[in-house]
Design a protein around this nucleic acid. Structure first.
Lengths: 111, 111
DNA sequence: GTTGGTACTGACAAATTTGTCAGTAAAGGG
DNA sequence: CCCTTTACTGACAAATTTGTCAGTACCAAC
């Protein structure tokens, strides 16, 4: 039985990573840290993601209290996602992660 | 075809996370940030990990230049892993991740 | 000569995650 | 009527990651 990172773990590193665990969650949060976005807008801004995966991840992030989903009951529907107050506590962490990533993305393998 | 996080991605968040991508890598690095350790010592310090997974992750981290493997050619063998100079650049990032994790691990679900 | 301890491999099974594809709803326009 | 748009579901296939299990090598001690 595979032990997924989603299970509760003693390790605080795992606790944090489990929140971003998912192929596209880091990127989604990164995009949303610039401000609220509509579903389709978000999808178009992330190359390679499929609508299915985007929605699955969005739902998990909403369930975990990281994102807020606001829906205008119009036709066609208009749904906007934004980072919750709780999710905002993650942003500085993402910034540090992002800074490391930017600094090392081209250098991979040169060690 | 599933797109693994290990592939090169434009997103710097993904670049960083791909280095820690693996069920136990964050924890392994966290343990080693306290100082070099032998394989078995590391295994005993991480509840739930199997020897197989530990070794697989260690090998990947060595391959990626994050860890250094030092072997004393004795019998029985004695192998010690430590964080490389390059890997050290990750430690501050792990610290921030860990701090968030510690602060929020019991509060999960309370939002 | 059998056992013990350490680090590690290979083959394979199980679990999990991701991706694909075909729908649904609902109002408005043609 | 049929088609469009937007957000979303369900069922299922494919890929990937994890876990299990049985070995290997080596020398020393018993």
């Amino acid at each position: 039985m595979a032990v997924s990172k989603k299970e509760i773990s003693e390790c605080p590193i795992d606790t944090m990573l489990s929140v971003i665990d998912g192929r596209w969650k880091g990127t989604i949060l990164w995009r949303l840290s610039a401000g609220p976005m509509r579903t389709g807008e978000l999808r178009r801004s992330i190359p390679g993601i499929t609508e299915r995966m985007l929605i699955r991840h969005l739902q998990e992030l909403v369930r975990d209290g990281i994102l807020v989903r606001r829906e205008e009951r119009t036709v066609p529907p208009c749904v906007r996602y934004s980072i919750s107050k709780y999710g905002m506590t993650l942003v500085p962490v993402l910034e540090v992660i992002c800074r490391w990533g930017r600094r090392h993305q081209r250098l991979a393998g040169s060690h």
